[in-house]
Design a protein around this nucleic acid. Structure first.
Lengths: 219, 219
DNA sequence: TTATAGACTTTGATTAATCAAAATTAAAAT
DNA sequence: ATTTTAATTTTGATTAATCAAAGTCTATAA
């Protein structure tokens, strides 16, 4: 019933509110995340409000309603299950699956999606370490601790990577920055805004604060 | 580059020209097969001509160019490979896969499609018995002989089913009218336009001429 | 030959999604 | 208390795909 454009808006808004942990999502972020002009986002959001998928306050931002959240969560589930399928079953590289899933998440029927879920053995996390929402829209809380929040010298387990860009994921893979691996901060250099890290027994390397903040860890 | 609407037009036109064995495809058939009004088909076909995907002669019909045929064939390959995947891998029923594939054929990247092809072991026929075009667009000639062209009493092998409608395929499956099975005409009743048939050792039953003509056979 | 039915084309309108650029507003800086 | 800036909204246009309904052909039947 919702068009694929609507599905994209609701998913993006939900993702922003989860990632930035905010209730009211500002218009600018929506426009940026969907790569449309601000005016387009405003007019679309007004339509979404008419359909009761969200509440919009001019110059404040947007909050999803229950039904809007449901659709958004459904899209996240689809996206992550499809990514898992592409890596596990077809053997695509984890750095190249995002765009694929972005398209397929709109095209697969509920029936096929649930078959896929069973075929994959009800996976709980996608290849980037992100939790896959259940059919009913429940999602495990992801770790709120990034590499930046860690003490120097403490061994941490990488939980997930909060960046979808192919180039970043290629870099991450190259450096073994992948879910499950053990990472340690060797030096914390505030002045240069970098941290020096080591993954498993691999050679050490540096990460900028922005990048380090995208590596979520636990333990 | 071509939109999914364009892909659908070119696929439909190619399918009609293959099935009806005609060079010039009349506008009426195009409109019917795509479920649009005749006026819509006319205006769309004019656009396709501008892009050099076909030649259009007013009140005569349409013939695909080389590039149009290529795109159409690409879509047939995608459709049939996806149908095969849905049945073989995910275990969907062969009568419910057409609509799914109709959507997915536009969404899958070339890369994923070729991975799928390898994963499935380069299948040569889809679950309905239709030949899957090769990557380069070559398609095996399908049997031109339908059940209606057979002698009474002669055992024939079912090659394919030329009807995509869910209800027909459900009926066919129920009666074991599936590729590979052996079928025999018991009686040919021109006056009632029915044939009485038997598949393998199953109970005999009747088929109207129209339906019998959709069961392609060999041997 | 003329009439007519059926196939096809034209015309004018609509819808969803978008952009560019001008106008507005709220917050921050002076 | 102004001014400036940055974010947002408004306005007016555009594009692809569609429909309904009116108009036009052409082949067949009278």
């Amino acid at each position: 019933m919702p068009s694929r454009t609507v599905e994209n808006y609701l998913k993006s808004i939900l993702m922003i509110s989860i990632n930035k942990n905010c209730v009211e999502v500002p218009m600018g972020m929506i426009a940026e995340s969907l790569k449309v002009t601000p005016g387009t986002a405003t007019s679309m959001v007004k339509n979404l409000q008419k359909e009761k998928w969200l509440n919009y306050k001019a110059r404040k931002g947007v909050t999803l309603t229950g039904s809007g959240k449901k659709i958004g969560m459904r899209m996240i589930r689809r996206h992550r299950l499809i990514e898992t399928f592409l890596v596990e079953t077809l053997g695509l590289d984890w750095s190249e699956i995002h765009e694929e899933a972005e398209e397929l998440e709109h095209s697969i029927s509920d029936k096929v999606l649930e078959k896929l879920d069973v075929f994959l053995g009800n996976p709980q996390f996608d290849p980037h370490g992100h939790p896959i929402p259940s059919k009913s829209g429940v999602i495990r809380r992801l770790s709120q601790k990034s590499l930046l929040d860690c003490k120097v010298g403490k061994k941490m387990k990488i939980e997930s990577i909060l960046d979808q860009r192919t180039e970043f994921l290629n870099f991450a893979k190259n450096k073994s920055l992948m879910p499950g691996n053990i990472i340690k901060i060797l030096k914390y250099q505030k002045i240069a805004d970098t941290v020096e890290v080591q993954v498993e027994k691999k050679p050490k390397f540096s990460l900028g604060f922005n990048s380090a903040d995208k590596i979520m860890v636990s333990g």
